[in-house]
Computed example of a mutant assay.
Amino acid sequence: MKQIPLAIGPEPVFTFDNFLPGANEAVLAELRSLRPGASFAATVPPIFVWGQSGSGKTHVLKALAGSWQGAGLQVGWYGADTPLPWDLPAQPSLLLLDDCERFDAGQQHAAFALFVEAASDGLTIVASGSAPPVDLPVREDLRTRLGWGITFELQPLSEQDMRSALRLEAGRRGILVADDVIDYLLTRFARDLKHLMALLTRLDEFAMSTKRAVTVPLLRQMLADEGLNP
């Protein structure tokens, strides 16, 4: 009988320190430099970060949220999976809009309303999407607001950086991952770091449930059990 593992593994941690920047040093420098508006009457230009799936957009937004919350500031998070209505925190300083390309009509209306609120209260907005604002499938007034400030493209990590990221996450989970396991992940699956991290999480849980070490044969067995081609 296969044991069902309890959800006792460490939750993902999203910080600037555990984000491998690769060619994205300028993005991180800009986000780290953000400070609350000096005047509530000021209009703070937004920042828009875009890139392909798994490039780290959500990671950097969550890292930014964590750094502001750590300083005692209120952050509002609004993603495509955040149900309406989108209410502001009691004393907001930073508003984050994630996966803008997935916003439905109601969420697009709510996002535009947040921009109006931000303009009047001097709030900072940082948003993300899969494409630059000009190419997003959103209403024109929202597209204009998203593209008004600085726009950054997150560049994909190199293979070496991918390996480093997987090893960093494995070490955080306390599991030993040999080179052949990482080779298998990088050669058999799309180099989408978000997807690869999810695979690593499932592999860790599967190893705990079977009480076996993390190896390529174990990875193949997990994929076969999931109905995937190992």
Rank of each mutant, 00 (worst) to 15 (best):
T144F: 12
G147W: 10
A41C: 03
L97P: 00
R32V: 13
N24F: 01
E25S: 14
H195P: 05
W86S: 03
L146M: 03
E25V: 15
S67H: 01
P133G: 06
L193A: 08
I47R: 00
M1A: 15
G22D: 09
D98K: 02
R139S: 14
Y184A: 04
L123W: 02
H59W: 07
G51F: 06
L84I: 01
P230W: 09
A23I: 09
H195K: 12
G129H: 00
D87H: 14
N18F: 05
M197C: 05
G9K: 03
A80I: 04
E101A: 13
P132M: 06
P5W: 11
L73K: 07
L136M: 10
R173D: 08
M1C: 12
L95N: 00
S120E: 13
R163S: 06
T151L: 10
D104W: 13
R173I: 11
A26I: 06
K194F: 03
N229V: 12
V216F: 03
A111V: 07
E140L: 08
T187H: 07
M1T: 15
P83N: 10
L157Y: 04
P36Q: 14
E30A: 15
E159W: 03
A65W: 00
R202N: 06
E11L: 15
P89D: 03
N18D: 07
Q108I: 13
L64S: 01
D104I: 13
T58I: 08
E25D: 14
R163P: 06
R212F: 08
R35N: 11
S158A: 08
H109K: 10
D17R: 14
D141P: 08
S39F: 12
D98A: 04
A29C: 09
I150E: 03
P217F: 12
V75H: 11
R172V: 11
R139Q: 12
A119F: 06
A170N: 10
L95T: 01
D192M: 00
T151C: 15
R167Q: 15
L73F: 08
L96H: 02
E205F: 10
L61D: 02
F152T: 04
A170S: 14
F48M: 01
A127T: 00
L176I: 15
T43W: 08
L228C: 11
L176F: 12
